[in-house]
Amino acid sequence: MDVELGGFLSQNSTYDYDDDYEYKEESERRGSEAVLIPLLYSAGLIVGLLGNALLLVVLTLKRRWWSAADTVILHLSVADILLLATLPLWATQAARPDGWCFGNALCKISGAVFHMNFYCGIFLLAGVSVDRCLSVVHSTQLHLLNKPLLVHVSCVCVWCISLLLTIPDWVFLIAETVASQEKTLCDYNYSGSGTNWQLLSRVCHLSLGFLLPATALAACCSRILLRLQQRSGRLLKQSAGVVIVPLAVVFLLCWMPYNITLIVDTFSYTSKEPHGAKTENSSLKRALMVTSGLGCVHACVRPLLYLGLCGNFRKQTLALLRCAPVEFRGSLWDLSVAEEVQPEQSHEQEKLKPMRSVECPLSADEHTQKSPAEI
């Protein structure tokens, strides 16, 4: 009886377990993204639409005049609603195994709206911070803020500048099938134009759209805080200039991770090595997806900030929910409702001061005239 010891002991072929492990890990990650991202975008869509719709109703219902702050709030709310309208498209791309199914036109529009929301938000907040800094620190105010039409024209100019900065989205965004992920994605494609256009668009976004207005925003807010620390008056601390500080801080906290990741991704193109380039690229793509979702969350947070900070908006919202007729002359951006009464009271006190100053000398003259007679 012959026994062959060759069999499986003589086989030299090996099995690569790493590829199978990476495949299972990649499939599990895609499955978790297909569930978590649509849930987060759906929750953000519901909360954001309800908050911004309530904000628009409060702004437009029974208001006789518009302040400059109300006009800025209106344009910011419109930008947030446009961004929220694109969230179902991104959620569908993450949930579907086939990926993007809405064509190239909606792909370009969705990407452009995403960046327009960022540009409009940071430019308008930077403009308001400059005005608040001038009024709080230097006790001056821009002349155009006294004319509502000029404020609307300025906001429209901000929209036009934001539209110009989104030209790379209209040109290079395309819905195409990615071979590595086996699905169609709405992503940038610079393969036909080279990396120079990609670097140019990144530099324009980071310098003109982020670093320059963010520096102005941070400088003005720091000046406002330093000035408010020097003046401890209660009326000054309740002024509308304080509202811009938490709004700017929350905006930068939501959008700064995306722009920092974009800076890292931009530098990776110039210093990319052949070894490990695929892993670095996939990790940065995942980081950009997460941080861009954080930027979309800001569209839901802004109405909640107005509700917590602005006393006029909070009181008018409660009156609207109770179906009670309420009208305000002040701006919704004011911290306290009492600010609307304080200027009128101070104006009446200034009118009473000359009357009292006139009455006091008369009483003194009468006393001096009566005293010799009595003597």
Rank of each mutant, 00 (worst) to 15 (best):
V337T: 09
V358P: 14
L309C: 11
Q345N: 09
L305T: 05
L307P: 11
R322V: 09
K315M: 06
R322N: 10
V337M: 07
R329H: 05
Y306M: 02
L320N: 10
N312L: 08
G311T: 06
C323I: 15
E348W: 13
V337D: 00
L305Y: 08
V326C: 08
Q342R: 15
R329W: 01
A338V: 12
V341T: 10
V326G: 10
Q316L: 02
K353P: 00
K315N: 12
G308N: 07
S336A: 02
C360F: 10
G308E: 08
P343G: 01
D334A: 13
V341K: 03
D334S: 08
L320F: 07
L321M: 07
E340T: 08
E339Q: 06
G311Y: 04
N312G: 08
K353Q: 06
E339L: 03
N312R: 09
Y306D: 01
L307Y: 03
G311I: 01
Q316D: 13
T317E: 04
L307C: 07
E350W: 10
V326D: 04
S357H: 09
A338D: 14
E327S: 13
L332P: 01
E339I: 03
Q345T: 07
L309D: 05
E348Y: 11
Q316N: 11
C360I: 09
L332V: 02
A319S: 15
M355Y: 06
C323W: 14
R329P: 02
A338I: 14
E366H: 04
P361R: 08
Q316W: 09
E344N: 01
V341N: 11
T317H: 05
K351C: 00
L307S: 05
K353S: 05
L318Q: 06
D334L: 03
G311P: 12
P343W: 01
S363L: 11
S336E: 04
E366V: 10
S363G: 13
V326A: 14
K351I: 01
E350M: 03
R329K: 10
A319P: 13
D334G: 03
E344G: 01
S357L: 07
P361L: 11
R329C: 04
Q345P: 06
W333I: 05
Q349R: 06
E350D: 08
S357R: 04
S331T: 15
Q345G: 08
P361D: 12
E339N: 13
A319M: 11
L335A: 07
N312S: 12
K315Y: 13
C360E: 09
P343D: 01
T317Q: 02
C310V: 01
L305N: 07
L318Y: 04
P343L: 02
C323N: 15
S336G: 00
S336M: 00
W333L: 13
V337P: 02
H347V: 08
M355A: 11
E340V: 07
A338T: 12
C323A: 14
R314D: 00
V337Y: 06
L318W: 10
A324I: 05
S331D: 09
V337A: 03
L307E: 00
Q342G: 08
K351Y: 00
R356F: 15
S346H: 13
T317L: 10
